[in-house]
Structures are given as C-alpha cells and as structure tokens.
C-alpha cells in the first residue's frame, strides 16, 4: 500500500513538460525565421493558455467500501458519455470501465470494484506501441491517438488490466466529443474532453457515482496536496492493482 504518487519523470516519454517546452521553443524559432511576429503572438497566447501541463497529474481514488455490488452507475455513465453500445457481445464490444465482484480467499469478505485504464506512469501500452499512438499526456492521462493507431492490438497484449478495447465493427452516431471508429484501440480517457474545457468538471463515472449517492469515485490532481483526492489518499490510504509491477498507477483503490 502506498500513497506516494510521483509525477512522470519525463525523459523517455514523448509528452513530458520539457518536451512541450522544447516543441514550443522550436515552433517559435520557426516563426521567428518567418518574421511573422504578429502571428506568433496570437499563437503563443493560444498555446500557453490551455495545454495539458505536467504540473498536474490527474487520477482517481476509488473507495471500495462505498461501492455497491449491484450498482453499475459508473459504467452506464461512461457508456452514455462516450456513446458506447452496451447491448452487444461482452467480448467484442468496448469496455472502458467494468464492475468486478470479489470475495477474499482468506476472510470471505466481499467487495465490488470498478476497473478501468489505470493511467500508469510507466504504462506498458505506451512502451509497446510501434507508432507511438498510445501515449501519455503531460498531465498523466494515458490515451490512444486514433489517427496514428494501426490497430495491431499490441497494447492490449501488454495491458495488465485488460483495460483496452479494439473496435470490432463499424460504428455510427458517435458523439461529437467522443470520436470512435472501427479498427483502432481505445480505453478510458479520464474524460479529457470534459476536464480540458473546465477544470472543475469531473469524469462521467465520478459524476454518475455521486448522483447515485455513493461518491465512491473521487477525481482530482494527485500532484496538488490540497486536492480532495490527495487528502483522501493521505488520510485513508489507497493501493494499486498489481502494485508489484511498479507501474505507479493514477487510479488508487481504498479497501482492496
């Protein structure tokens, strides 16, 4: 059990903060070459304003003592948010988040947990992706860039959490904020489209859980010691699934 959450160490990750700075600097250099000072000001403001920053590390805290076995509000909330059809075959449809019921082998204690992408700091899916489509954002969110994903599924082989889904068939009526399509791999995005636009927003699963009056899922910035999630982790503690792999996950469970 551990509550320490390191930020991404950068270096080997393509989207570290240093890299973002570097890209920005290069970008400005090129602009300078063009002598387009006016334009560079416009774009600089735009870039500096809203890019994901490594000052933050988004994560989830899941209190299993508050999670109830019969409830799948988080799953339904996620499916609704991303236009996932839950009516299809469970092995070929997308499963961004799923509920698992557990019984302790020694004590017989029962628990129920939602499992989704754990947003690892050292994500195996990012390491194995041949094209770099599987990547980690500066703020720790692990995503698939579906524009460069070739659908090889090596990330799914590598994921210890069975958290990724391959789209097996043609999709229609996608949501504007959740582009999804046949032949690429996808997984929980921590609802980046929500948290990017407004930092007070919560991922759909957390909202649904709160609406159900369980409040078992807390979303927040693991780097900020004053955030709700950091305080929770500090006071009640939280462990990682497969902590033995030393992946430093962004999703932590209390009561596992």
């Amino acid at each position: 059990m551990t509550t320490s959450v390191n930020n991404n160490s950068g270096g080997d990750q393509p989207q570290g903060s240093g890299n973002a700075q570097l890209a920005r600097r290069r970008f400005l250099q090129k602009l300078g070459l063009m002598g387009a000072v006016a334009a560079s000001y416009t774009l600089l403001e735009v870039q500096a304003k809203t890019a994901a920053s490594s000052d933050k590390r988004w994560g989830l805290f899941i209190d299993t003592s508050k999670c109830s076995s019969g409830c799948d509000a988080c799953v339904r909330g996620c499916n609704e948010e991303h236009g996932i059809d839950a009516g299809k075959d469970e092995h070929t449809r997308a499963q961004w988040i799923r509920k698992i019921d557990l019984t302790d082998n020694l004590t017989g204690a029962e628990s129920s947990v939602p499992v989704m992408c754990q947003h690892c700091d050292s994500a195996p899916c990012v390491d194995v992706c041949p094209t770099g489509a599987s990547f980690k954002r500066a703020d720790g969110v692990v995503l698939v860039n579906k524009h460069t994903c070739i659908g090889c599924r090596y990330c799914m082989m590598a994921c210890p959490y069975k958290a990724r889904s391959f789209i097996h068939e043609n999709l229609t009526d996608q949501k504007p904020s959740a582009p999804r399509g046949k032949g690429t791999v996808e997984s929980c995005t921590l609802c980046v489209h929500r948290i990017d636009s407004d930092q007070n927003q919560q991922p759909a699963c957390a909202v649904s859980c709160t609406d159900e009056a369980h409040s078992a899922i807390v979303f927040g910035d693991l780097n900020d010691p004053d955030s709700d999630i950091s305080k929770k982790l500090k006071t009640v503690g939280g462990s990682q699934i497969r902590a033995d792999l030393s992946l430093n996950t962004g999703v932590r469970y209390h009561g596992l």
Partner: peptide, 13 residues
C-alpha cells in the same frame, strides 16, 4: 489543430 488537441489537450480552438 488535431495534434494540439489530442496530444496537448488544447480545446475550443
């Protein structure tokens, strides 16, 4: 715009 949004999380542009 796509690369900025997907990789850097810049939205609403």
């Amino acid at each position: 715009q796509r690369d900025e949004t997907v990789i850097e999380g810049i939205r609403g542009e």
